[in-house]
């Protein structure tokens, strides 16, 4: 029965998050208020959606470094379209379609060229980012519309709509991974890709699908982020891809064997956001934040790897 415990275990990210909250709770007045928790949740919403997509890619033993750039390009594109007078519903569809295309580009190059995902997406990261910068001529674009406020601020059952949208994306990803034939193939890709070939499932087609899925999730994340900052900023997605990878890894998804799933990712995301939001609340200037987040995340990943090693002994 020891084994059973092993795979039902809550990822250490949860404990680390609770520890962080305790520290912040001591440092910051009124940290444990409902208002603050709602704040953290609404800030975490875009990251959660992006990390859901990233989970699929990590499961098949890759990483998508271009997701942050997709977020940037999507948010700029959306505002550009709105400024051009495109109706809201159409602009959203166009934006999500384009994010699917970005994912498709990644997927096709990775799967058909049989190239390492990280180098391909490192390349496309720069390509998409350039597209974003070219679209807005390196400026932040503005547009005002009530829907932004509705999604980002207005609440349903105590939580902003953006949080509910993120939770919806999370549930969908969970169902996709656990309950659909496609999800089985993603787990298979990471665990034993030869089994796919032998069972007659296409490795490349499923890889491409996963990248498209991740692209669309980044698109949705971009829209949510855009609603929150009410502008289109070509740098808004910077670093989000790394935060997503960190969240996925800390959530217990492994780059080997296809272990893990989106269930753990949510803990990783919360850990990342608690860490990030807290730094601002402590009153640390944004200059210090990147280095601290990077160090804490690397330390957490090392700690996590260390724990796993202990368990295997």
């Amino acid at each position: 029965m020891k084994n059973k415990e092993k795979y039902l275990k809550v990822p250490p990210a949860l404990y680390m998050m609770l520890a962080l909250m305790l520290i912040y709770g001591i440092l910051v007045d009124n940290y444990f208020t409902a208002q603050n928790m709602v704040n953290i949740a609404s800030q975490a919403a875009p990251l959660l959606v992006i990390a859901c997509g990233q989970t699929l890619i990590v499961l098949l033993q890759g990483t998508d470094l271009s997701l942050g750039s997709i977020v940037s390009v999507v948010s700029v594109l959306w505002i550009v379209l709105l400024n051009l007078g495109v109706p809201m519903w159409l602009s959203m569809i166009v934006v999500l379609l384009s994010s699917a295309v970005f994912g498709l580009i990644n997927g096709v190059i990775v799967a058909k060229g049989m190239l390492p995902a990280f180098i391909v997406t490192l390349g496309t990261q720069n390509i998409f980012k350039s597209v974003a910068l070219l679209l807005c001529n390196s400026q932040t674009l503005y547009f005002s519309h009530s829907i932004f406020r509705t999604i980002a601020k207005e609440k349903l059952l105590g939580m902003p709509y953006s949080v509910w949208i993120a939770i919806l994306c999370f549930i969908i990803t969970w169902i996709v991974l656990r309950k659909t034939t496609f999800g089985m193939k993603i787990t298979g890709l990471g665990g034993n890709s030869e089994a796919l070939t032998l069972a007659g499932a296409s490795i490349s087609r499923n890889t491409i699908k996963a990248f498209v899925y991740a692209g669309v999730m980044a698109g949705i994340g971009g829209l949510l982020l855009c609603c929150r900052i009410e502008s289109g900023n070509p740098n808004s997605g910077n670093g989000l891809e790394f935060n997503a990878i960190a969240a996925v890894l800390l959530g217990g998804t492994s780059m080997r064997e296809g272990r893990g799933g989106v269930g753990g990712t949510i803990f990783g995301v919360l850990f990342m956001q608690v860490l990030k939001s807290g730094l601002t609340q402590v009153g640390l200037s944004s200059i210090y934040q990147n280095a601290i987040i990077g160090i804490v995340v690397l330390a957490a990943i090392i700690f996590d790897a260390f724990l796993k090693k202990q368990q295997e002994m």
């Binding site: 034939t181 787990t187 298979g188 665990g191 089994a195 796919l196 007659g200 064997e257 296809g258």
Partner: peptide, 14 residues
């Protein structure tokens, strides 16, 4: 076998 799928999922894979 795919290590993190259960017996049923493996038997009926694809």
């Amino acid at each position: 076998m795919i290590p993190y799928l259960n017996a049923a999922q493996n038997i009926f894979f694809n």
